[in-house]
Design a protein around this nucleic acid. Structure first.
Lengths: 359, 359
DNA sequence: TTGAAAGCGCTAACAA
DNA sequence: TTGTTAGCGCTTTCAA
């Protein structure tokens, strides 16, 4: 093998220089080679009219010969519109599939416009979000699509006033101050809970995410809505919020089942909580006699036993719309800020249709 | 509500202007407000020594008052090192969990250095990869981490020669021309297949990804290695490659089981193929009498029935090492190019330990 | 310690 | 159709 093969943890450094570095060619280098002024090269590179075919051909040849790639960054600095053709995307965590789907949807809309995407994960940590925001702002992104952290969003609003398009995604913490695209969390949760009620459940446990999260609060309200609609009182003994870690979710399920007059069904306010509940019910051998509906779909939910009924979000539409809104603003739209609400979809698969167990 | 609420597909435009736009302040604006030269402001902003505390304080106050954010792009243009503190990351698809984990691992290393990440999905489409590459190159990223598409990688190598650090990730198409970090695909696959052999299987079906993919070829070689090691001949009737869609994978499983002297076990060369095989075996009611080992882990594999035995990759280490290598090059390391091979891990969970069914 | 001038690679404005 | 000059916001260089 021509190159050094390194097994992880067995790195052996060597010193020979691997490549000849060529200086990166500029407009002037191309101009010199083609024997024209560098403004002429600029015209050719940008497909501006008013260059004779003869010169244009010579310039193109020189570009190719030097493997010239225009410096988009320098052109941005001088151009009137000052566009970087880059947007910033601040997600919860790029490694989580929901964030990944949002990212991909945004990317696809951006790529159609020749816009690149700076992406980052803030991990529900406001200070990490601020680091990302600052880094993106200094790079003068044309727009920011942000899953907003709980806490202060005024730095984002300040940046917006300086001309950066801003769209909140998945959460709407500052309705009226910026565009936002969110799932219909409240109605979706209500639909899921109503589904359990329709299947005969009267004792429905609620397993909620961090109270500080906008979506968690909306979903909790949806849970209450469904109970109220069906004339049922909310029993505090059946409500657990700020449940996030797998252990916490599992423990909560066990604890609620051990209580007097226990829940016969669970509504899980989030992906990971749903999976943790499945694990625990499975471990307790009760996966088939307790009903479960989860908010947000996940891969293989349909292959579990029983298959898991969920209220599915539509991350692709969320991402697409956020990107479309941000580009409308970048293009100069100056209408009132909008809150777009994307519907959810109940997917009955089995776990949500289990009747109350007699016990 | 202060703002217009729009349900998806019911957009009603309005015309009032939502914000007052402020001009974005520059060094000169800050200097004017603080009553100093703009070079002094530059010194303060960059924590350069040699500014009196009195002036520095005045400058900082002015920065705050104007909400000044330095233009990193302009500073890059002038600085000697010409660093953008941005790297480009070209992945197969940011919405797939494996890519997401790579991305996150790269991001974490980058963030520690104040470097932002431009990310994109090339979808196994070389022309889309070229679009991303060009966009990143024009923005003068300091480094590129690329899951290389099948086909020509010379444009990447040319860019490398112009000073952009280049690391191939997950695939090593041009060993010796650039650094690369890959999984130990071949040995991992061999381990998985040997595991099936150890459990008594002599007829092991191979379900492989696109032949054109470097990883698919490596894993196939691993399959052959294991057979050879155990003195078994490879039966072409048991090998299917270029299987990718769910339908193709499912159909292939059915077809192979319908043959005379059918497989008693399957080795799936990839994530999605494994899941498709699970689905099909389940549908055929044979999930418990055919063994299955998949390459690459996936969420909930342990909760399926039977739980799925896999050869797990380590995307976090892959991403970390790729990022570390790219930054070493950016920092000027000029040693020989390295190929780093990250080990895989066999996770026996149930499906891979099923003995050959008598039939 | 502070500031003035030049210039990074490019586009805008205007002249030839 | 082609070229010249200025300047985007900043850092570098050098002078005060």
């Amino acid at each position: 093998m021509a190159c050094q093969r390194v097994w992880y943890n067995r790195y052996v450094p060597t010193l020979s220089s691997p490549v000849q570095r060529a200086r990166r060619p500029t407009l002037r280098d191309v101009a010199a080679l083609a024997g024209v002024s560098y403004k002429t090269v600029s015209r050719v590179v940008n497909d501006e009219p008013g260059v004779s075919a003869r010169l244009a051909e010579r310039v193109r040849l020189a570009c190719e010969q030097l493997d010239y790639h225009p410096d988009h960054t320098a052109s941005t600095l001088r151009r009137r519109d000052r566009r970087t053709s880059t947007i910033g995307l601040i997600l919860e965590d790029v490694s989580n599939p929901f964030s990944g789907s949002l990212h991909r949807a945004v990317e696809d809309v951006a790529l159609d416009r020749g816009v690149t995407v700076l992406a980052g994960s803030f991990d529900e940590d406001p200070s990490r979000a601020r680091v990302l925001f600052t880094a993106f702002a200094r790079r003068r992104v044309d727009g920011l699509i942000v899953v907003p952290p709980s806490g202060d969003v005024t730095p984002l609003i300040m940046e917006q006033r300086k001309g950066t398009a801003l769209v909140f995604l998945d959460r709407a913490p500052a309705v009226g101050a910026a565009d936002a695209v969110v799932s219909d969390n409240r109605r979706g949760a209500a639909t899921g809970v109503a589904h359990l009620i329709r299947h005969g459940h009267r004792r429905i446990g609620f397993l909620g995410d961090y109270t500080a999260l906008w979506t968690a609060e909306e979903r909790y309200q949806g849970y209450l809505d469904a109970l109220a609609t069906h004339g049922m009182a909310a029993d505090p003994a059946l409500v657990r919020r700020d449940v996030r870690s797998d252990e916490a979710a599992g423990a909560t399920v066990s604890e609620m089942l051990a209580a007097a007059d226990p829940a016969t069904a669970f509504f899980a306010g989030q992906n990971l909580i749903t999976m943790a509940a499945v694990r625990r019910l499975r471990a307790l051998g009760r996966a088939h006699d307790l009903a479960l509906v989860g908010f947000d779909d996940f891969q293989l939910a349909d292959l579990l036993d029983p298959p898991v009924t969920v209220v599915a979000q539509d991350p692709v539409t969320l991402g697409h719309r956020a990107a479309e809104l941000v580009f409308e603003r970048i293009d100069g739209a100056d209408g009132q800020f909008r809150l777009e609400v994307v519907p959810t979809l109940l997917l009955p698969r089995g776990s949500g249709e289990i009747p109350p167990s007699p016990r």
